[in-house]
Design a protein around this nucleic acid. Sequence first.
DNA 1: TCAAAAGTGTTAAGTTTACACCCATGA
DNA 2: TCATGGGTGTAAACTTAACACTTTTGA
Lengths: 225, 225
Amino acid sequence: MSYYHSEIKHYVAVDCVIFGFQQGSLHLLLLKRKMEPAQGQWSLMGGFVREGESVDEAAKRVLAELTGLENLYMEQVHTFGAIDRDPGERVVSVVYYALINIDEYDRESVHQHNAYWVNIDEVPPLIFDHEEMVAMAREKMKQKAAREPIGFNLLPELFTLTRLQNLYEAIYGEAIDKRNFRKRVAEMDCIEKTDKIDKESSKRGASLYRFNANVYRHTNTKFKL
Amino acid sequence: MSYYHSEIKHYVAVDCVIFGFQQGSLHLLLLKRKMEPAQGQWSLMGGFVREGESVDEAAKRVLAELTGLENLYMEQVHTFGAIDRDPGERVVSVVYYALINIDEYDRESVHQHNAYWVNIDEVPPLIFDHEEMVAMAREKMKQKAAREPIGFNLLPELFTLTRLQNLYEAIYGEAIDKRNFRKRVAEMDCIEKTDKIDKESSKRGASLYRFNANVYRHTNTKFKL
DNA sequence: TCAAAAGTGTTAAGTTTACACCCATGA
DNA sequence: TCATGGGTGTAAACTTAACACTTTTGA
């Protein structure tokens, strides 16, 4: 209105790199675009920032639209601001990543958006600069997961240690020594053994564990997996 | 024009957290605003993203406007997108930090912008969300400086080891053991001793060192100071 | 001659890595 | 009974941290 009238405005969008964990691998929720530009090609889920919402809120809305889930763990990654990154028109895009428990999304909604879970190591070519977005999001998530307990967002509430180890192997992209891994887990009070046993994944059965966020907040020991 | 006509646009700005190193402390280059809104208050250097430039280019331009320097080391920090973060009008701001050798900027230009170097531990109240921007930039710079040789951008080409140590102490906010520090430096081939001696800082004189970016690129040893 | 910064190694503590076998169970 | 995944400890290698005195020189 008043101060900045001599400046120009831009479209501001958000794009979401949505991580899930399945069959021992990280997966991404990708869309096969139903609209121009780039119809028929693969892309991240995105949307424009609207008038009455912050950029963070726009990302939450876009995620909820697709997955039906509110309160996902989400983090801003980077803003992509090249002039011609979108060949349709100039759009500045703020990228977020989200971590979701792959058992809990709204399949109906995902289906309607023409979205599919794709193994992160078999991602098809993506439109625009979306591959770079994925690369940055993956790297940032990896760094964060090593030092803060965000990985549990990718798991159900109860999980076996083998499953947790598989998750971290997928995140780091390398094998982890089982005994060393369990030693580290044992030192972390916030990862609690429950008295429940999982019989799905093995004949013998494996103890189920749970992440306790309260314990995490009240202990001063650094998280490190 | 075509695809996104039903969406609305936003002002997109850049704000720059400009670090310098002086008298053993990190300093920030801050402006006393000459215009509304928030005239007379302290702020970061900023500006709007224009039509023919990317967001990165806007940040470079804004930095060059203030300091007269091109090719500064610069990194994107975060995008601030709250609706009412700027009480004048809605502006989405992309924050960058830059590292500058405090001996080399254009004093004339800085003076004209009403800008001053302020010790980072004595920063006055800043407008809007600029204090949060500074905090995030500082943390990100610290993380990066520990693992990549960006600190040299804050120093002249030749420097003594004591000066380098003082810089890292300022970045980390804690004292470093002199012998351990020098041991680490000695193991890094990219930090080369020259045959020049600095006589300014001590009676005895101290050897001057230089960072060699080529050597850094061609060695595989991780940078760690 | 003395104040001020430069320069220099060793040891202990802590952390990280490598590694192999027995257990419980359902098919 | 055997194939499958669950569960457990120790020693060596490496990394980090702690620590104090001698040197040079200009004022």
